[in-house]
Simulated assay, not measured.
Amino acid sequence: MKLLMLILSFNLIVSTQAAEIEIEYKGWISSSDKQHVETWLKRGVETTEHTLGALQQQTLPFIIEPNLFASEPVPWGTVQRGEPDAILLQIKRFTSSRVLIKDWTLYHEIAHLYHPLLDHSDFWLAEGLATYLQNVIMLENNIFNVGEFHTRLISGLSRGAKNTLMNKGSLKRVSEHMWSLNAQQRVYWSGVAFFIEAEIALQDMGNKNTIRTLISLFQQCCKNSVISGDKNSGRLFIASLDKLSKTTIFSNLYANYKQREDFPNLSKTQIYSLQPLR
């Protein structure tokens, strides 16, 4: 079937440059569904940029795979690294933009574009960051309230702790074999715990930065200086966050987390103390 492409152009938030969203549909999709998809993608980019700043790439390609039999609105998504980075998303056909906007997948995948591709041993860092940021993005843009924000974090951390019982070994090693071990919950939520701890440490010391502001700064100044996929990419990424925050919070946590064999023990009190939108 001939592939259809639609290009939408609009001004990025906090940017004077125009960005282009390129949408490629792999499979048949109705005109009505296209309108819902286009509304959803535009809203998702605008929402993410409102929280993380303008994305530093001129075009943002989306590859959309319609699926009639999916059990959820967006059953799967991934980033395809390249020149430029692109995002592949499967969607359930006949899903309204209102429902799509409430799904977390798009915010998660766009958030990945704000950091370089990290080595397999640091997947916990990349997936933890995107998972944490998706929740911050959805909170700041009123997709859900602060109660839901806390509930989602507590629930996810609980799943991570349970999955850790079935996946022994250092977080670094488990990350390298995440798919074969079915250890996604441990890997993703250990990474979320890392950024929660860093967020709390920043606010406790009165540092003006938050995770989201540091990621915005990193993407503007330093992302291209880290070679994507290099074995040192995670360490260099962490060093940049330390430099931007003028702390050693990130490197100290990183040295501990990548070797730890347990799941981080964060209390509900700590979760409730989070102020990601300071």
Rank of each mutant, 00 (worst) to 15 (best):
K2I: 05
K2D: 14
L6Q: 15
L8Q: 15
N11F: 07
L12Y: 05
V14A: 03
T16N: 12
E22C: 08
Y25P: 10
K26I: 04
S30T: 06
S30L: 04
D33I: 09
T39A: 14
V45R: 05
E46L: 15
E46K: 14
T47I: 06
H50G: 15
H50C: 09
T51N: 09
G53C: 02
G53M: 02
Q56T: 01
P61K: 00
P61G: 03
P61E: 09
F62R: 10
N67A: 08
L68W: 05
L68Q: 10
A70T: 10
A70Y: 06
A70W: 04
E72I: 12
P73R: 13
V74T: 08
P75W: 02
W76N: 13
V79E: 14
R81P: 05
R81T: 03
G82H: 04
A86P: 13
L88G: 10
L89F: 06
K92N: 05
F94L: 08
L100A: 11
K102F: 02
D103W: 09
L106V: 14
L106C: 15
H108K: 07
H108Q: 11
E109A: 08
E109Q: 07
E109H: 04
I110N: 05
P116M: 03
P116D: 09
L117N: 13
S121G: 05
S121F: 10
E127F: 01
T131A: 12
T131S: 14
Q134Y: 05
V136K: 07
V146M: 11
G147H: 13
G147V: 03
F149G: 13
H150C: 14
T151L: 13
R152N: 09
I154P: 07
S155I: 11
S155M: 12
A161K: 13
K162E: 14
L165W: 06
K168E: 08
S170Y: 04
L171R: 12
V174G: 12
H177Q: 12
H177R: 13
H177P: 05
M178Q: 09
M178H: 09
S180K: 11
S180A: 09
N182P: 00
A183E: 01
R186C: 11
R186S: 10
V187N: 08
S190F: 02
G191L: 01
V192M: 08
A193R: 09
F194W: 11
Q203S: 14
Q203A: 15
T210G: 00
T213I: 01
L217S: 01
Q220H: 01
C221R: 00
C222K: 02
S225W: 00
V226R: 03
I227M: 04
S228N: 07
S228W: 02
G229E: 06
D230V: 00
D230E: 07
K231A: 02
N232H: 12
S233Y: 03
F237G: 04
A239G: 00
S240R: 00
S240E: 01
L244M: 00
L244S: 00
K246H: 01
I249C: 02
S251H: 03
Y254H: 14
Y254V: 00
A255C: 13
K258M: 08
Q259T: 08
R260E: 04
D262N: 12
S267V: 01
T269S: 14
Q270L: 06
I271A: 10
P276E: 09
